[in-house]
Amino acid sequence: MAEPLLDVKNLQFRFRGQDQDVVQDVSFRVGRNETLCIVGESGCGKSVTALALMGLLPKDDVRFGGGEVRFDGESFAPSDQGRIAQMRGDRMAMIFQEPMTSLNPAFRIGDQIAEAVERHRQCGRAAARARALEMLAKVGIPAPEQRLDEYPHQLSGGMRQRVMIAMALANDPELLIADEPTTALDVTVQAQILDLIAELQAETGMGTIMITHDLGVVAEIATDVAVMYAGQVVEYGPAEAIFNDPQHPYTIGLMASVPTLTGPRRRLSTVPGSVPSIGQMPEGCRFSSRCPFAAPVCGTRPPLRDITPGHRAACHFAPLELHLERSA
């Protein structure tokens, strides 16, 4: 198998003052042209995982517990955030949920995009500005020459997210990390942005990591899915396997609790309770405090193991039918 673009192995870290890892043994890979969706709810560690991959974690406040990040064949220690950060904005780029807080309100958008280009390409101002204009046109901003000299507050939310995408892709990154890029947008605008990212990916062949809580978005764009709960990857595999053959009780509960647009209207399943705080994580399987199938064995941590080749789940009872029959 060819080496993937990004290969994350056993990423593990905690914040200063905590006695538990916020991200524990997280592994996944992304190839060129592929889209990995990391899905999970608030506090599952999906965003801090992205920050670690971008070299954006403040190194004095984080204790890394090992693991490896391989990017295009080159190996990085996750704790070497400075070295990882050197690729940021150039070989890999990130877009965030709230474009208003990620753009500097005091600078014209053209200058903000041009700055990113100048910094990494060592080109002149004029060339950088030309690139900024080209990118604005590419992300579908009407009248880009005029927009170049506008400030972020003059744009709508959807337009700001397009500017963020233009900035992120200005240096042709090989990897794009998008953290909930459409969550703050209306659905019709969300559809436009998802289409835009897909188009640009088809054109450049970049690998994409999309972080989201929206299973609809996942179904639409993912080639592979990592489901995270409380800092652990509980299920991982091709999108089709995750949706058609969900294995981990958390994945199943999450999917069953989403109201559907089609089919009969049934009472929604729920995942009881809420995510424990980091100091109160149960030993072993962290989902055990909310899992309807929990048993004493869940006090030891279940390994993320292959259920079918390439489709992994971290549950002692997967696949469920088999184990329920056995105990019945």
Partner: peptide, 13 residues
């Protein structure tokens, strides 16, 4: 348009 814009949480639809 609104209905067709919503991504649905089912694979391959």
């Amino acid at each position: 348009a609104l209905l067709s814009a919503i991504p649905e949480a089912a694979h391959g639809r």
